[in-house]
Each structure stands twice: as structure tokens, then as C-alpha cells.
């Protein structure tokens, strides 16, 4: 392997890679740094403080948007993960069937259709449902988030199922387990890390969504990202930096757990 092609032997590769990382992370580092800024202006350093975190914490609107974001993300990730688990079982634990590829594409569709298109489509459908039923609660947002989170939950679950030794389920059947017992005592426990990973990914994706939420939400249904967007339109305060940094912290924590769960064992 020593003599095989190695990109770092090309001139400038290391430099370009460094530049790319700088472009990716410099803004985030700046954001985090300025979230601890004591000044009122967003880009003048005025000393270290937790002032904007305190301001955000005390802000009623931030509180309710955060609560709403967490409710929607939790509900959407539970629904999306349940559906994704069933879909993953349905596509890996049965004989190959006609139209299988089509099913894969259909399940992963939200990854490919432009989000704005989905948003408009949902807006139209939900608007007519609203008129017909009079219901205007969080259900629409939860449903919309569940839908676009499904492929994100599906991918790690399916990967885990495909990596699972099929002979384990055969062995369970050999040892008198009926299909339900096989699922309950063998498939599910072995699938659990995939399910948790899928749920976390779905949670993070839902927490971060702006476009679809912006279109589907009713008045007074701001989530944290749409609240921030609204704030930016008016006056930019370092409070947004603090909220962003908190959101970043949560996301990094969840994604770390996700990677720990999905990395290869051994």
C-alpha cells in the first residue's frame, strides 16, 4: 500500500484543505466567541460576559420558541423513527420484490425534492385541512417535521439491519422463537443503537428546520430558528449569537452520541 496514490503528494493539497477548514469553522468560532461579548454591537469586542445568555434565558419569546422546538422535535423524531424502523424492516427483512428500488427512492424522496417545494405543497394541503377542520394546533408542524425526518431516521436503521447477521434470526427461529419473539428478543435489541441514532439525527434535523416550518406554522407558532430569523429581520443583537451557540452545543452533543452509536464495533 505504501506506493499507492496519495493525494497529499500533490502540491498545495494540504494548503487547500486547511483553507477549506478555515472557511468552515472560522465563522462558527467567531460566532461562539462573540456570544460571550459584553458589548451591544454584534462585531465590536467589549469584554467577556454571560450577559446575552442571561438575556436570552429571560426572554419570554425565546422560552416559548425553545419549548415549541423541543416538543416538535421530540414528537417528530418519535414518529419518524417508528415509521423508519418499520420501513427499514420492510425493505430488508423479506424476499426481494418488484419495485424495491422504487420504494427506496420513495422513502428517500424528501432528501432530493427541494425543500421549498415540499414547503409550498404542505402549505397548500394544510391550508385546506385547516379550513375543513378548524384545527390550527402544533399538529401540522409535527406532521410536516415527521415527514421530512423519516429518511434521516431510515438510513442509520437500515444500515444497521443490513449489517446484522441474518443467521441470528434463523438461530432464534431454530430455538423455538415465533416471529414476534424473534423480533422482540433478537432483532430489536441488536437494532437499538441504530434506532437511537436515527432518532437523534431526526431530532437534530427537526430542531434546525426553517423553510418548511416558516411555511407551515400558524401565527404565534415560532420555533427557535424561525424566531431567530424574525429577530434578524429587525435588529441584530448578540442575543442571537448566544442562542445559536446554545443550539450548536446541543447539536454537537447529540451528533457525538450519534457517531458513537453508529461507528463500527470492535
Amino acid at each position: 500500500m505504501g506506493r499507492s496514490f496519495d493525494v497529499t503528494s500533490l502540491p498545495g493539497v494540504t494548503f487547500v484543505a486547511g483553507l477549506a477548514f478555515l472557511a468552515l469553522y472560522a465563522p462558527i468560532v467567531t460566532l461562539v466567541a462573540y456570544s460571550f461579548n459584553d458589548a451591544n454591537a454584534i462585531s465590536v469586542w467589549g469584554g467577556f460576559s454571560f450577559r446575552w445568555y442571561e438575556a436570552a434565558w429571560a426572554n419570554r419569546e425565546v422560552q416559548s420558541a425553545t419549548a415549541r422546538s423541543l416538543v416538535i422535535a421530540s414528537a417528530a423524531s418519535v414518529i419518524a423513527t417508528s415509521v423508519a424502523t418499520m420501513a427499514a424492516l420492510g425493505t430488508t427483512r423479506r424476499a426481494a420484490f418488484r419495485g424495491q428500488t422504487f420504494i427506496y427512492v420513495a422513502i428517500n424522496q424528501p432528501l432530493m425534492v427541494p425543500e421549498i417545494v415540499t414547503a409550498v405543497a404542505l402549505l397548500i394541503v394544510f391550508a385546506s385541512v385547516k379550513v375543513a377542520t378548524g384545527y390550527a394546533g402544533l399538529g401540522y408542524l409535527i406532521l410536516a417535521h415527521s415527514a421530512f425526518c423519516i429518511p434521516f431516521a431510515y438510513l442509520p436503521i437500515r444500515a444497521r439491519l443490513e449489517g446484522m447477521d441474518l443467521s441470528l434470526e434463523t438461530a432464534a427461529a431454530d430455538l423455538y422463537a415465533n416471529p414476534w419473539q424473534t423480533f422482540r428478543h433478537v432483532t430489536l435489541p441488536l437494532l437499538a443503537p441504530g434506532i437511537v441514532a436515527g432518532a437523534m439525527l431526526a431530532f437534530v434535523i427537526s430542531l434546525d428546520d426553517v423553510v418548511i416550518t416558516e411555511f407551515v406554522k400558524s401565527a404565534g407558532q415560532d420555533t427557535l430558528p424561525t424566531y431567530m430569523l424574525g429577530q434578524m429581520r429587525r435588529a441584530i443583537t448578540p442575543e442571537v449569537n448566544a442562542i445559536s451557540t446554545a443550539l450548536l452545543g446541543l447539536t454537537v452533543a447529540l451528533l457525538t452520541v450519534f457517531f458513537l452509536l453508529t461507528r463500527k464495533r470492535g
Binding site: 447477521d165 443467521s167 441470528l168 438461530a171 432464534a172 431454530d174 430455538l175 422463537a177 428478543h185 441488536l190
Partner: peptide
Amino acid sequence: NTVFQSYALFPHLTVAENVGFGLRM
């Protein structure tokens, strides 16, 4: 019952739980 070529032991169970699996089911 079968002894599989790959053994197919349940990785999430202990030795004793593996042995008792059939009786439990």
C-alpha cells in the same frame, strides 16, 4: 436444533442466556 457453521451466537446475551434461549422461548 442446529449448530451453525458460524455459531450464530446472540452477541447481546451472556453465555448462560444464550444457552437458555430455547427454553425461554
